[in-house]
Write a protein that binds this DNA or RNA. Structure first.
Length: 434
RNA sequence: GGCCCUAUCGUCUAAUGGUUAGGACAUCGCCUUCUCAAGGCGGUAAUCCGGGUUCGACUCCCGGUAGGGUCACCA
């Protein structure tokens, strides 16, 4: 057994859009398999025919792809009915399960189901994260393992598949702890080995309850659509419930794989904090080249904008969804000049606009005779004057006249992007109205 | 309610018997700065409670308390 290759799996049911909690679990399994040069399997648990939908399965595949989580094998439980039926028959034949007459309680309930004959014994297993956990299965009763011979339910199929697929480490959410004794009971009845279990803590909603759509949890593809980088999300999710014990937090995926260990996984649940995710995302944006930034953000950057705006955008935002609002605020100078109060052209240390008008006049004189019009050349041409008169006295009114806003990039950058003609025009407009 | 799991700043966490209980996000202040952001520096802020064990407990044990999970013909 010591040389057995590690095999882990992610086994979601396609009954809804999965959130960060689900993918964090998948991520830990994936990291563990990579670290051990093992195999990672995606298994779609669609035994609930009524609730499973292809679109949800598609979303799972799409989400994993976006996150960069690659699986070596793919299975769908609805393709494996024969396997379950034969095992179910085996359990009935050996007396470990039986057909039970029922009184239907809800619409869709059968009059006959297959129940597992509970031996009512104590079960214990060693959880890789929590240590020894004990249960008395008497509390469980004879639980249902199939609605009919062709309709097995979760407890049965999960055990059969994990065995058939050679899963060595079942890394799943804490909400499955109390299912584990049932699974071990079935394994014993089938005469198959018990894999290793690691129950990782849940991701929590801000009120510390289980994450759910109702509690505002977002499908993972929403993070893509809101302009987060998959690497940043992976980095952040890795650090929810785990950390390497050093003070480094921004880590490449390779570093994470290298340093990950189940022993260092937290036992308590963690709240998903989007502010910190946002910070991680900014770290990753800062590290990107402009070219990579443009590629990654191409769906968020308006078409036909000046390439000169790109560095300004990149340094301002922490996620791509912040790009669009930028054009209403800091970058609004690229639009036609808004109506603004000319009183605002006055730097806070000035009494009135008398000096301001003189300053702006001088700026125009200097700029009008320039031939090369770049942010460097404009700055070079005006800087001595700004230092002589006071930088605020010169730069504030110039910047305000060019942008019509109290917040914007510096006036030299704006001048270059606007071009000489428009720059001079806006400055003259201010002068005329003082 | 039964069973199970858990408990360090608001949040994510470090410290596996000896630290002024460390870091990050957030927050507050200062610096830098024409503005905003970024950046730099600094501050506020935590061991759930009560008993043990020990020379010494965040750390080990017991008991409370609190929170969570689970008790489906869902997974």
């Amino acid at each position: 057994m010591l040389n057995t290759k590690v095999v882990t799996r992610f086994a979601p049911s396609p009954t809804g859009l999965l959130h960060a909690g689900n993918y964090r679990t998948a991520l830990f399994s994936y990291i563990f398999s990579l670290q051990n040069k093992g195999k990672f399997i995606l298994r779609i648990e669609d035994t609930d025919k009524a609730r499973s939908k292809k679109e949800y399965e598609d979303n799972i595949v799409e989400s994993l792809k976006w996150l960069g989580i690659k699986y070596d094998e793919f299975y769908r439980q609805s393709d494996r009915s024969d396997l379950y039926a034969s095992n179910l028959k085996k359990l009935i034949d050996s007396g470990h399960a039986y057909v039970s007459k029922e009184i239907p309680k809800e619409v869709g309930d059968r009059e006959e189901v297959i129940r597992f004959k509970n031996p009512n014994k104590k079960i214990s297993f060693v959880d890789l994260i929590r240590g020894k956990i004990e249960f008395d299965t008497t509390d469980l009763g004879d639980f249902i393992i199939a609605r009919s011979m062709n309709e097995p339910v979760f407890h049965l199929v999960v055990v059969i598949d994990d065995f058939e697929m050679g899963i060595t480490h079942i890394i799943r959410g804490e909400d499955h702890i109390s299912n584990t004794p049932r699974h071990i009971l079935i394994q014993e009845a089938l005469g198959i080995p018990t894999p290793l279990y690691a129950h990782i803590p849940l991701l929590l909603a801000p009120d510390r309850s289980k994450m759910s759509k109702r509690k505002g949890a977002l499908p993972i593809t929403d993070y893509r659509d809101r302009g987060y980088l998959p690497n940043a999300l992976i980095n952040y999710m890795s650090f929810l419930g785990w950390n390497p014990g050093t003070e480094q937090e921004v880590m490449s995926f390779d570093e994470i794989i290298n340093q990950f260990s189940l022993e260092k996984v937290q036992k308590a649940g963690a709240i998903f904090n989007e502010e910190k995710l946002s910070w991680f995302n900014k770290q990753y944006i800062d590290k990107m080249s402009i070219d990579d930034f443009v590629i990654a953000a191409k769906n968020f950057i308006p078409e036909n904008i000046s390439p000169k705006l790109l560095p300004l955008i990149k340094e301002k935002i922490s996620k791509f969804s912040e790009i669009k609002p930028l054009f209403e605020t800091e970058l609004s100078f690229i639009n036609p000049l808004p109506v603004y109060s000319f009183e605002l052209l006055k730097w806070k240390q000035e009494k009135d606009l008398v000096n301001t008008k003189v300053y702006l006049g001088h700026i125009v004189e200097v700029l009008e005779v320039m031939t090369e019009f770049t942010k460097e050349s404009v700055k070079q041409a005006l800087w001595p004057y700004a230092e002589e008169k006071g930088k605020g006295n010169i730069l504030w009114p110039m910047r305000f006249a060019l942008s019509g806003k109290d917040k914007s990039p510096d006036p030299f950058v704006i001048a270059e992007i606007l071009g000489k003609e428009e720059t001079v025009k806006r400055l003259k407009y201010a002068i005329q109205n003082i």
